[in-house]
Nucleic acid binder design. Sequence first.
RNA 1: GCCGCGGUAGCUCAGUCGGUAGAGCAGCGGACUGAAAAUCCGCGUGUCGCCAGUUCAACUCUGGCCUGCGGCA
Length: 311
Amino acid sequence: MRNLSTNEILVITGPTASGKSRLALDLAASIPLEIISADSMQVYRGMDIGTDKPSTEEQSRVAHHLIDIKYPDQEWSVEEFMRLAQRAIKDIQARGRVPCVVGGTGFYIRALLRDYALVDAPPDWEFRRKMQSFARQDGNEALHNLLLDRDPVSWRHLHPQDQKRVIRALEYYEATGKPISSRVGETRAPRYRAAVLGLRWERQELYKKIDTRAEEQFRRGLAEEVAGLLKRGYSEELPSMQGLCYKETCNYLAGLSTLDEAKSLVMRNTRRLAKRQFTWFAKEDGINWIQAGKDRPWDHVVRDAEEMAGR
RNA sequence: GCCGCGGUAGCUCAGUCGGUAGAGCAGCGGACUGAAAAUCCGCGUGUCGCCAGUUCAACUCUGGCCUGCGGCA
């Protein structure tokens, strides 16, 4: 860890509730690092408990980037993540410190490490709305079939029910005249030399941690946090408010479920998220997995991480 | 002790005039290139409490046993 070369970055990933933030903070004791959050939800201000954001104390102990940079009704996307993360990496390196990307949003991390192309095809909400109403009228099949002559590859790969992706593919074609599928195959030289660490838990143990954390989140005032956001006028339809913990709590606050129901839904949906993350990471190569567990002292985990980081 | 009801998937339960079983939830697997904590697709995982009997065939009918719950003593 003492000899991270100048263009090397550190990445800490793993499923939700695996202790990524904690590991990063502990690593900061021996590595002069700054943390860049690769988390699609921690960017939103005022969404603290539900996103299990590092505390203000932790954030002042070690510099954090890409946290609290948006209001819950502002747009946010992988592309902006890439831009801001790249800039943060440059800045941190200019300070002679080590950028440490921490987060469980695999899509963001993959985009950053594989240097996805930043093409001029931003979301076109009017177009999306048009397509949505087309789908409502003529059905998802018909919408999907619009891809047939524009982007046959996507037509083949996307399931007709996957409306979001179908519309995005159409939107991309509309904006660029090229199929989005051509972009997928593009390979580019990675911009960074990254030491990628992944935290791994035995599944049942992780599930138990998830349940415990959910209990804690409600105890710490998740419901009050969500109520406050709603009162400030943030609609529950917003992507931010559709995040884990938030959508379930909105339903509870609207009287659609009891507190206990909301709680167990949060637990279930978090487990499901973890499962999707397993699937995602399983395909990602180059991750150095570190085994964590209730029988494994945490400082062993930290020591493993230090060794792998310094390689 | 007696009477009644029950014992089928991890949980709650449905079911078969006898042809070895299916829902919901949970769970598991997968996809993913500008919403990704989102979105989408797929999969029953089972000594039908145990033992015997009747039958070509028993989860189903009969008997016994075990066990849970309720009631009466």
